[in-house]
């Protein structure tokens, strides 16, 4: 049996959202949805897991704090302690108030950059990458639902039309 890919194209995000819900209620797997902007509630409707991007930011922030502290400790206490305006150069803890600004910047620097890099890697985005979208209009005003069908696709096509798809394209694999 051949596997075909169906592309249901929608004009409106609310119609798409209700269609997604109905199609999934009928136990049909939706492979992907492409949209020109984020649609509120679509991730839940598609049954996507919650993203862990915020957790990575927290971990990277902790990493920044640790590395920043180690850097300052090494440079100010171990390698070359100096008496600067009588500030306590013998103890990291006593000199800590003066280090807070730099430590804070280290946290933000690490969290923001490493999270963004993680985001790009997880999404497979890189300079010069190719778009996976089957239809160029999905960055403009069309919403596209991709479904893989084995065998007869007429029932799914009917369902797509009934739930509001304005255009259905089929690609044979």
């Amino acid at each position: 049996m051949s596997t075909n890919t169906l592309y249901g194209i929608f004009d409106d995000e609310e119609v798409l959202l209700s269609s997604v819900k109905e199609i999934r209620a009928n136990n049909i797997e939706i492979k992907e949805v492409y949209s020109p902007f984020p649609i509120h509630g679509l991730d839940k409707a598609l049954g996507l897991k919650e993203t862990r991007m915020a957790i990575t930011a927290f971990i990277y922030g902790c990493l920044g704090l640790t590395l920043g502290s180690l850097m300052i400790y090494y440079m100010m206490q171990i390698d070359w302690p100096q008496n600067i305006g009588g500030k306590p150069n013998w103890s990291f803890y006593h000199n800590l108030p003066a280090f807070v600004p730099v430590l804070f910047e280290c946290v933000v620097l690490f969290a923001a950059h490493l999270m963004s890099i993680t985001y790009l890697i997880r999404n497979g985005l890189y300079p010069g990458g190719k778009s996976d979208s089957p239809d160029e209009r999905t960055t403009d005003d069309k919403f596209l639902m991709e479904i893989q069908v084995e065998g007869d696709a007429t029932i799914i096509k009917e369902m797509l039309t009934k739930t509001g798809a304005t255009e259905i394209n089929e690609k044979e694999a």
Binding site: Y34, S35, F37, T51, Y119, R122, N123, D132, S133
Partner: peptide
Amino acid sequence: FGWSGKAKHWQRFEEV
């Protein structure tokens, strides 16, 4: 960067 607007990408986009 090869952006295509997948549902998962938008979810991450909003969180990031």
